[in-house]
Simulated assay, not measured.
Amino acid sequence: MLPFLTVNCPYCGEPQDVAVDDTAGDQQYFEDCQICCKPMWMSVSLDPDTGEIQLSARSQDD
């Protein structure tokens, strides 16, 4: 089962839960906002020591 993390959309600012594939290591990809449908550039990183997942979202133009 994939973990869910909360991230705020860089466009509309609404928080949303996003499923993150924690088996794929560090990754970047586009995912549409569930509220305003604009593309968010998602960045996932895993701390190698703790296994903690960090998720951030930014606009397509950033």
Rank of each mutant, 00 (worst) to 15 (best):
A57D: 09
C37T: 10
F30K: 06
C36M: 12
G13D: 07
L2V: 13
C9W: 09
D22R: 15
S59P: 11
Y11I: 05
L55N: 03
A57C: 07
N8K: 09
A24V: 06
Q16F: 05
M40Q: 03
G25Q: 03
A24Q: 15
P3I: 01
T23V: 10
S59G: 14
P15M: 13
L5F: 00
G13E: 06
D32H: 04
D49I: 07
D17L: 02
F30W: 15
M42S: 06
E31C: 03
S56H: 12
S45E: 13
V7K: 00
S43V: 08
A19S: 14
P15S: 09
T50M: 05
P10G: 00
Y29R: 09
C12L: 14
C12W: 14
L55E: 02
E14N: 15
S59K: 12
C37K: 10
S45D: 05
G25Y: 08
C36Y: 09
D22Y: 08
D26C: 10
W41F: 15
A24K: 13
P15E: 03
K38H: 04
C12H: 10
L55C: 04
L46S: 14
T50N: 08
S43A: 04
S43W: 00
Q28T: 14
M1A: 11
M42F: 07
C9L: 11
D32P: 05
S59N: 07
G13M: 06
G51H: 04
D32R: 09
A57N: 06
D47T: 11
Q54V: 14
Q34H: 11
S43M: 05
G25V: 06
F4V: 10
M42Y: 10
Y29A: 04
S59M: 08
C37N: 11
D21N: 15
D32K: 13
T23E: 15
L55T: 02
P39C: 04
A24Y: 08
A57Y: 08
V7F: 01
K38V: 06
P48Y: 05
Q27M: 13
M40K: 03
N8P: 05
M40G: 00
Y11M: 05
S43H: 09
L46M: 15
D62C: 07
L55F: 12
I53K: 03
N8C: 06
F4H: 05
E14T: 15
E31P: 00
D22N: 15
D61E: 15
